[in-house]
Simulated assay, not measured.
Amino acid sequence: EWSVVEAARLMEAQHVKRLPVVDETDRLLGIISRGDLLRIFLRRDDAIRDEITEDVLRRTMRLAPSEVTVEVHDGRVDLSGSVEFRSLIPVIERLCRSVDGVVRVSERLSYRTDDARRSPTTAT
């Protein structure tokens, strides 16, 4: 019933390379290794690209596929294209960084509307 993080922390704290996996009656089901835990985060580039394209850009940000191009090489994500508002760029970048397996995010995104510009205030 442990999470991956709990198992990894125990392995680190106890300086062990493997943990037994047991059922509720303590019957051995298998062994989990550090490599097994690491593989969860070492995702294929196409899986990372698909998650960013479908989940982050299309579902979460409601962007059309033609607006932002996603390229992934060894976990490094490159975004290019154009979005409507300047304020969307750091949000997209932050969401992409949160995807498992992403090592780095670089963006070359332009914007059509600078909604981050402050309007001048007048003193009264």
Results as ranks from 00 to 15, higher is better:
86 R>W: 03
2 W>N: 08
82 S>C: 12
57 L>W: 10
64 A>V: 03
18 R>D: 14
78 D>G: 05
93 E>Q: 09
1 E>M: 15
101 G>M: 04
26 D>E: 14
122 T>N: 05
4 V>W: 10
96 C>W: 07
9 R>D: 06
56 V>H: 02
101 G>P: 02
107 E>V: 07
94 R>H: 11
27 R>C: 09
28 L>F: 10
43 R>D: 04
16 V>K: 10
94 R>T: 06
17 K>T: 15
104 R>T: 13
7 A>K: 01
53 T>W: 00
95 L>Y: 15
23 D>V: 00
49 R>W: 07
112 R>A: 13
47 A>P: 00
117 R>A: 15
117 R>V: 07
62 R>V: 08
79 L>W: 09
109 L>M: 07
3 S>K: 08
119 S>I: 03
10 L>M: 14
87 S>Y: 05
94 R>G: 04
35 G>I: 09
7 A>T: 06
81 G>D: 09
104 R>S: 13
13 A>I: 01
70 V>L: 03
57 L>R: 04
55 D>Q: 12
77 V>T: 09
34 R>D: 07
63 L>N: 02
40 I>Y: 09
105 V>K: 00
91 V>D: 01
57 L>T: 03
17 K>Q: 12
22 V>P: 10
28 L>P: 03
86 R>V: 00
83 V>P: 11
104 R>C: 07
17 K>M: 14
53 T>D: 03
55 D>N: 11
64 A>L: 05
33 S>Q: 10
66 S>M: 08
108 R>M: 10
10 L>C: 13
78 D>S: 09
